[in-house]
Amino acid sequence: MRTLGILGLLGALALYRAQPIDCTAISLQAIIDTARDGATIAIAPGVCAENLIITKNLTLEGAGGGQTVLRGSKPGFPVVLVQSDTPITVTLKHLTLANAPKASDTPQHGKECALFYPELLCPSGLQVRGAAHAIAESVRIVRNPWVGVYVLDTAQVLVHSSEIIENGWGVYVSPDASVELRDSRVERSRENGLEIWGTASVQRTLIRSNGRSGVESVGTVGVFDSEIVQNRGSGVLLVGASRTELIANEIAQNGLWGVAAQLRTCGYLADNFRGSAVLDQNRIFGNRLGAVCLP
């Protein structure tokens, strides 16, 4: 890890408002740790090989266009961890969060990593914990082995105009947490595109070519004006006591059903649905087993 003398750090702090930080020469974590609450830190083009921990109100802004890359260097940890026991807001803009390195002794699934190995935190792109709020604006979150956007505890995340591509899970939300996706893409996840145990609102988002379901709803989920297409499993899978609203979406060319409950009559191994679903003005076509399988 880079070290920074006190004079060098003071000089960097004096400059970070006026010009972007060169994270290949200066520790970005050191800048974050000493920045004032509510500061904005601009980051120059380049690859920042650090795992970042943010525990205060802060904005990190890159150069956009894939030029500023935050790449994890510590195996088993997220590229960016936002955590606080009290509400804070962290905004990430025009950045790429990529390639959190996998630890050889972590289990094979992201959610198991957090539940059973919390000290590892999980090699996700963005992990938000505690009472923290995070905003990802025009961010690319790619090729992280567990979860692209991992929302735990009572955390809240807004993702807009962003891409979440080629991660283990695209977005995973635990029971008391929430996420809002707008005008984004969730594609080519190894597992589910979205797995929602808490609350999610999805608007004008493309959910495509994920390895299992496009959306697995276990909590409270609303999907509006979005495309859920070409996923290997069902476009939308309803599980447990989920409450799901699907309005004005295109749900097409998925490998199982367009929309299905986890029931034996739909081809699943157990009857595990006692929730509710509202479907209106959706275009559901070309799914291998059919359009809808609900009680």
Rank of each mutant, 00 (worst) to 15 (best):
P107Y: 11
G72S: 07
L289D: 14
G211Y: 02
K93P: 04
I31Q: 06
K93C: 07
R36C: 01
E216Y: 11
Q156G: 11
L256Q: 14
N287C: 14
E119P: 02
D271C: 00
V47G: 08
N249D: 09
T199R: 13
A114K: 10
I165D: 09
N144K: 05
V179W: 05
N231L: 07
A136K: 04
R274L: 05
T55E: 13
V47I: 15
A291I: 00
Q156I: 10
T40C: 03
A131Q: 15
A252G: 07
A18Q: 12
R283Q: 12
N192Q: 11
G255R: 02
L52F: 08
L15N: 12
L13T: 02
I251D: 02
Y268R: 04
L4N: 01
G65R: 03
L92S: 05
L58Q: 08
A63E: 08
I31P: 03
R283E: 10
A14T: 14
I284Y: 03
C293R: 06
A241Y: 11
L126H: 06
L158M: 12
T3P: 00
L58V: 09
G8E: 14
W169R: 04
N99L: 11
N144G: 04
I54E: 05
S27G: 09
Y172T: 09
S174E: 15
R264M: 11
A132W: 02
D153C: 03
